[in-house]
């Protein structure tokens, strides 16, 4: 009797506080997700009122689709470069901006600003930089490297995406690393100083191991954002030249809405979901193991 009452009471409290959010989450995320999986098993084109259930043949098509896997490999390449460079630069910036140089606050704010600009705007700005500004500079200074638009060359176009993403995210990850650096107890560093550790030893032996939690967070964020990137891709290269920089999100979108093969696009999206979930979860699991207990 008593337990039943307290259960009801708990339920009421839950419904009052978390009810609306749960409701919205169910209807906006979970149900569409499940319905999406169902649609991936049909031959819907996105508009017709009637469509047929066709089992797993969409998945079969996706596994045989060379374009899909090329695009996926390209995305992996892009993610690899961005994760490495973003974290490297972010950590360096964070380290320099906590070492007590002049104008720290202003610099921190400055490096963070790119992250506040929306991806589309950013893409358009950099599109101008790569296709006009750099070309103009290259031609007037006779620099072979910049004389031709980077956006017109498949390899260089991928690098423009990497450069812009690194520029955009380094500031954000820098903040996370700064938080990690500030939280390292002073005593430990002082102890190392007294023991005669030099700068390099201090970073590798003391600071980095104690920073693992912030690396876990920033790696997770950069990985996930890298796999899901769409806006910069759209505004900067739009998949060009000749679809050579079509990252996976854009590929899925184009399949579903442009090629009018919604079912296939939906199965690609689901496969992508599983792969990204697997990658990020393994990353979090293994890096958690590296964390040092104080």
């Amino acid at each position: 009797m008593d337990t039943a009452k307290s259960f009801l009471k708990k339920l009421r409290t839950f419904l009052i506080f978390a009810g609306p959010t749960t409701f919205v989450f169910l209807f906006v995320v979970i149900f569409p997700f499940i319905f999406g999986i169902y649609l991936s098993l049909t031959n819907w084109d996105g508009i017709a009122s009637v469509y047929r259930f066709i089992g797993f043949s969409n998945y079969l098509t996706v596994f045989q689709d060379q374009f899909f896997w090329n695009s996926f490999l390209l995305t992996v390449k892009y993610v690899l470069y961005t994760v490495i460079f973003v974290n490297l630069i972010a950590f360096t910036l964070a380290y320099l901006l906590t070492s007590g140089i002049k104008g720290e606050e202003v610099l921190r704010a400055g490096f963070f600003v790119p992250n506040l600009i929306g991806g589309i705007v950013l893409g358009l700005i950099w599109h101008f930089v790569f296709s006009r500004a750099l070309v103009f500079l290259g031609k007037s200074l006779n620099l072979e490297l910049f004389s031709y638009s980077w956006l017109a060359n498949p390899q260089k176009a991928l690098w423009t995406l990497v450069i812009v993403s690194v520029w955009q995210y380094s500031g954000y990850m820098m903040l996370i690393h700064i938080a990690g650096l500030v939280n390292i107890p002073k005593e430990v560093i002082e102890a190392a100083l007294i023991d005669g550790a030099n700068d390099g030893q201090r970073i590798i032996r003391i600071i980095l191991p104690l920073m693992v939690p912030s690396f876990v967070v920033s790696m997770f964020l950069t990985l996930q954002r890298g796999f899901m990137v769409y806006d910069v891709n759209l505004a900067l290269t739009n998949g060009g030249p000749f679809r050579s920089t079509e990252l996976i999100s854009m590929h899925v979108y184009k399949k579903a809405f442009l090629a009018q093969e919604y079912g296939i696009g939906q199965s690609q999206a689901f496969i992508l979901f599983i792969i990204v979930a697997a990658i990020t979860l393994t990353q979090v699991y293994f890096s958690k193991k590296l964390e040092v207990e104080m």
């Binding site: 000749f242 442009l258 090629a259």
Partner: peptide, 14 residues
């Protein structure tokens, strides 16, 4: 077909 121009257009660009 709907995806004719993006696919074949890319080949023409190449």
């Amino acid at each position: 077909p709907a995806d004719h121009w993006p696919v074949v257009g890319a080949s023409m660009q190449k």
